[in-house]
Design a protein around this nucleic acid. Structure first.
Lengths: 222, 222
DNA sequence: TAACCAAGTTACTAATGAGTAACTTTAGCA
DNA sequence: TGCTAAAGTTACTCATTAGTAACTTGGTTA
């Protein structure tokens, strides 16, 4: 058995095993997230997920303590990406409306990049206990930062006066909806989708909409 | 068998009973729809719904043949309202962008008017068999009519050149999201919400966005 | 009054699905 | 080579839940 593997000594511990495990964990997250999105949390059984991964249900318990915890992890992944997007938007050295567009662009792009980041459309009541409260509060804080971006844009004159609450509901709602219809491998990349939609949506709020052209995005407009 | 019911002749048929039944059926639809929206189809048990209505589960089977059929009925109610909205928009004697705005306004208003009309955010895989195909195809046709409105607007010059597919995904996505956060009894009526959002969203697509002012909608923009 | 039927009840069944126990196999390592 | 633990298996348990059967009650009609 020459699976001797000199690997263990110097640097990595169980180099293969750990890497394999990481890959499988990611595959689990991807499959679980897309199944939850399509069939809902309660509509997806662990047997379904296990079968899709080619293992038996108890094998999943080596990776995740239980179904609720799996859902919680997925929501965290999703929120991490969302928060990173808005953070980068906030930090951009430009005016209010552009910061808003950048945050929205990055957020939509994150939704198209991986199913794991797509739990936004999920039924809200699926999570229970303290975890539910935590996720809900992060989600609200995320929306709050978008509202602040809108308010700042109104103050600096780059966003037309409007009610930030509804403005954010509009643009984030449209963004969230992407996870419903976007599937990788279509004619448009995730970046394309994010660019087109973020422009279109922010154009509706801009004090000077002419800054945002849609022309470049025309397809079959006869 | 003279239960041809002489009662039947004059005016009302089983005046009390039938009216009661109708009311209870509507209450069932409302409760079921809002429960499905919050907790998902599979996350909502018939026992839950029955308890909320103050009856026992088997009583529901006097009103609906089974759980799938209940879901189907709710989707039909939802689609009836949606189709009525787009039909009225199409028939409005104005230009393309305004027809689009009117259709969107009526659609959003329908979502705020009753939980029964709100199944849009539901997990798609919940319905099975021929019914699923029928609902999906009606939903697609509905979206297609919106795309046609956008294309017509581009042709008559009232809508800025853009990809109708993404334009419709944006505005309907934002509209659908309303069913997630809107609850009757807030500071804004369903009509308010529909008016504000439809204006804002269509402004992003209009060839001349200055037609759509957001100013009237300002609230706490500090 | 008697018959009837709508509307509801309690008590069940059959299936599904989350989670556990106990066993097997294989990879890594001294 | 032999030890160890990770990774996975089959076989269960227990709770939940869609749907059914059989019975009770009360209003409506002849």
């Amino acid at each position: 058995m020459a699976r001797m593997a000199i690997k263990n000594q110097g640097n990595a511990v169980f180099p293969d095993r750990a890497a394999q495990r990481e890959l499988k964990l990611e595959a689990l997250y991807e499959h679980a997230a897309s199944a939850f999105n399509e069939k809902g949390f309660h509509g997806t059984s662990l047997d379904d997920i296990a079968a899709a991964l080619g293992v038996s249900k108890p094998a999943l318990y080596r990776y995740v303590p239980n179904k609720q915890a799996l859902l919680y992890r997925l929501h965290c992944i999703s929120l991490d990406a969302a928060e990173a997007a808005v953070t980068e938007g906030e930090a951009s050295p430009t005016d209010g409306v552009e910061r808003l567009r950048i945050a929205l662009y990055l957020y939509i792009r994150s939704l198209t990049a991986s199913s794991s980041a797509c739990l936004v459309l999920m039924e809200e009541g699926a999570m229970t206990g303290a975890a539910a409260a935590e996720i809900l509060s992060r989600r609200r804080a995320f929306e709050g930062r978008f509202r602040t971006l809108v308010s700042a844009g109104i103050r600096d004159g780059s966003v037309a006066p409007c009610d930030p609450k509804f403005a954010v509901f509009s643009i984030l709602g449209a963004g969230n909806w992407v996870s419903r219809w976007y599937r990788p491998g279509g004619t448009r990349s995730g970046e394309d989708v994010a660019r087109i939609m973020s422009r279109q949506l922010v154009r509706g709020l801009a004090a000077d909409p002419s800054r945002y052209h849609l022309d470049g995005d025309v397809r079959h407009a006869s």
